[in-house]
């Protein structure tokens, strides 16, 4: 078992999130996190899905996802060639305000609110960075937190949305990386 991040371009149509969620539920694939939002094209949304599974199951997940009519393109987002970010908002008690400020500074986080004895910290970063920040803040007493789920983007000029061009629909299929992967 290992962690894999998928970027999935989907048609921005009603029910598409339910279709993806239903597929994962039906085939018993566990999602670690899922983030979805609009893209540069108003007709297309982008999902970033983090999964924990074996490599050959990942091929199957991608092939099954691609069968959904509303799914346009899928790509795995390996850490080495992509930028991974999560957003964290966390409320901590301000009893040790100066120490909290020091932690926030060390982790390049931001204080976005300080009211009624509570400091709200905002941070973005890779999953490990967010986890370390949370560990550092935990002793101060975390009242509540929210995380966005991971989003990821390929480094350099490569863009998943290039593959939404109709002529490349079939090549996308071949990029699924199934066990017997052939290029036309």
């Amino acid at each position: 078992m290992s962690q894999h991040t998928l970027a999935v371009l989907v048609e921005n149509s009603p029910g598409v999130l339910a279709r993806v969620a239903s597929l994962f539920s039906r085939r018993a694939y566990n999602i670690d996190s899922l983030a979805v939002g609009p893209t540069e094209n108003p007709d297309i949304s982008r999902m970033t899905i983090v999964l924990n599974l074996d490599g050959h199951v990942l091929d199957q997940v991608m092939a099954q996802l691609y069968k959904l009519v509303n799914v346009i393109a899928i790509s795995e987002m390996p850490l080495a060639s992509t930028v991974h970010r999560e957003l964290l908002l966390v409320k901590v008690s301000d009893k040790k305000s100066s120490e909290i400020h020091a932690v926030v500074e060390k982790f390049h986080a931001t204080i976005v609110d300080e009211t009624e004895g509570v400091i709200t910290v905002e941070a973005t970063g890779e999953t490990s960075h967010i986890a370390k920040l949370l560990a550092a803040l935990t002793p101060f007493g975390i009242k509540e937190l929210v995380q966005s789920g991971l989003v990821a983007l390929e480094r350099g000029s490569a863009a998943l949305s290039d593959r939404t061009l109709s002529a490349q629909g079939i090549s996308t299929l071949h990029e699924l990386g199934t066990q017997a992967d052939y290029q036309n």
Binding site: D59, Y66, K67, A180
Partner: peptide, 17 residues
């Protein structure tokens, strides 16, 4: 014709879609 059948239950040494 369905790529998702390849390797679903049994490894395929050669897949022809």
């Amino acid at each position: 014709i369905d790529p998702a059948e390849i390797g679903k239950n049994r490894f395929a040494d050669v897949a022809v879609i």
